[in-house]
Amino acid sequence: MTSKGFRRAMLACMWIVLAFMYIPIIAIIFMSFNKTQYGGFPYVFTTKWYTTLFTTSNLLPAAMFSLRFAFLVTIVAVVVGTLCAYGMQYYTPKFAKRFNTILQLPIIIPWMVTAISLLLLFSFIGVGRSYVSMFLGNLIVVLPYVVLLVNGRFVDMDRTPESAAALLGASPGRVFMDVTLPAIAPGMLAGGIMALIMCFNNFVIQYYLIPVGENTLPTLVFTRIRSEYQADLNALSAIIVLIAVVVVILLSKLGFSAGSLMGMGGGNKKEGN
């Protein structure tokens, strides 16, 4: 039995930690509607920063480029990652488990290390900074997430319906389209969303590998904060937070939590029958 006081203290801890995490996010949303440039008081409500963002500010082309780039990387990552996860199923569980561990390495290695080593590698073969280098760098960073998530679906799913379909006369291609794909689709979708987010906001890799003079949204924001800061950045941040909220809700509808994405388990609902 825990005492009433102890329980209250723990509850207070929980709320303090939660506040610690969410106050900055809430603050930036408030500040995006504040008239003064550097978030000072008095607080005067305005939507002028949103207007600036969509009119005079030069952030939008970079944002669109980042989005298109992230989608391209995501599509390739989902296709390649799914193929890789499919291949893993042909190995014994013991080997697949080891492979799973190896896959987690690119997630844990700091992106800075990945970025610098890629820059060295690309310079060595004479490519240097380029869109291709940046594309490959981002692909490397997001692929493990797709493979891990799709593999998780494979491990959870019942494989006998695939045998049943084959015995009913379906060719291997048909079996994949009719039975396998619907079963792993949630994993592919979650992996895709994950890849999209990571790629959209991966400053480190893009900073090192983007061609000189070009900008993605993260690299542009970085320069803007240093030289010509304006509160339209706050408005942009608020919009991104809104998108993130939508994504989290979407993911949890699919049965994933951010924890399960990182391989920590607990969030992956098993579908009973």
Partner: peptide, 17 residues
């Protein structure tokens, strides 16, 4: 297998969900 025309019923039903 898909050309054998043999029907099979599995222990866990193996229906297409």
């Amino acid at each position: 297998p898909e050309k054998r025309n043999i029907g099979m019923v599995f222990q866990n039903y193996a229906l297409f969900p």
